[in-house]
Design a protein around this nucleic acid. Structure first.
Ligand code: FES
Ligand code: FES
Lengths: 153, 153
DNA sequence: CTAATTAGAGACTCTTTTGTCTTAAAATAA
DNA sequence: TTATTTTAAGACAAAAGAGTCTCTAATTAG
């Protein structure tokens, strides 16, 4: 799999937060229900993003989490790096240590090219891009749901 | 990680076999030493490829495994599909079931594009392509080795 | 102040992946 | 035939990933 489950959950969660006005905190409990992700597991993942500075949290009634920057400023790559780390974009496709031009494997050139296209996609796509597209086309962020349902309430 | 460890080992092993003349069997023990992969683990992986029909095996002295087709006819995608299955090329980037045009997620279009470039790379590269490149440029298939060393003996 | 609500932290379990080991079966060589 | 070499098969263990649960700390509402 390209991205870990944690990373995918993190993406869906931050994408959901990107649909919210900046000021308000969204409780993780609500997010976990909307996104159909285990509450405790999602909590752990969002804690990483909070520690990373991408989210800020607030305890108590009316508490929750929110993005620290507008969704247009957060690229998918930021979430991926915060959760899965840089391995996807730095490791040798054949698993050899020290991928790079000094000591390449036979697949290096082709993999470097492919990897660049993955990186470009993640770098050129912001949370807002996806949120807007999702809203405009009423796309899903869960197995059966749609965007309208996600935004309701 | 893009490919599982098993898959990467399978690629390195078949790539090594592609450097051999077609007729002869190479013992897995020797491959495991050349490639610095655990013998028993490599055996299990190559058994999958044998079951899949990509390799044939022969027991006893002078036994081993060999490719059933010339390396120029085996594409990387064949090895990947045999070991990791089609998930990489069919699954939703956000982990939702049933990736496809009928019910896409907001990332679908961009991911489909990126996925195509991964698939194209795997489909357009044969074991021989890599073996020839490796030999010409004396590249490595292990942490510290080089191709010349691989071919010796 | 007290009760309720929320995130934080960490122990714990379950599953999958990765890796090891032992025994059996096939083939050869002497 | 007997010993040796090799793959086949499968049990087993270790590590990593995924998911659950409990308790604590902060904050607010009443
Ligand atoms: S060294 Fe293998 S992909 Fe770079
Ligand atoms: S539905 Fe998500 S990538 Fe296709």
């Amino acid at each position: 799999m390209l991205l870990s489950k944690s990373c995918v959950y993190g993406l869906r969660a931050t994408l959901y937060l990107a649909t919210k006005p900046g000021g308000e905190f969204t409780p993780i409990k609500k997010m976990s229900e909307k996104l159909e992700i285990s509450f405790h597991f999602l909590t752990k993942i969002l804690q990483q993003l909070t520690a990373d500075g991408m989210l800020e949290s607030f305890k108590g009634p009316n508490g929750g989490v929110r993005l620290t920057k507008p969704g247009s400023k957060i690229k998918l790559i930021d979430v991926v790096l915060a959760i899965d780390g840089p391995k996807l974009l730095t490791e040798c496709a054949l698993g050899l240590p020290g991928c790079g031009l000094k000591n390449p494997c036979p697949l290096h050139d082709k993999w470097a090219e492919t990897r660049d296209s993955i990186r470009d996609m993640l770098q050129n796509t912001s949370l807002s891009d996806l949120a807007e597209k999702g809203e405009k086309e009423n796309l899903r962020l869960t197995e059966d749901g749609d965007f309208e349902e996600l935004l309701r309430n």
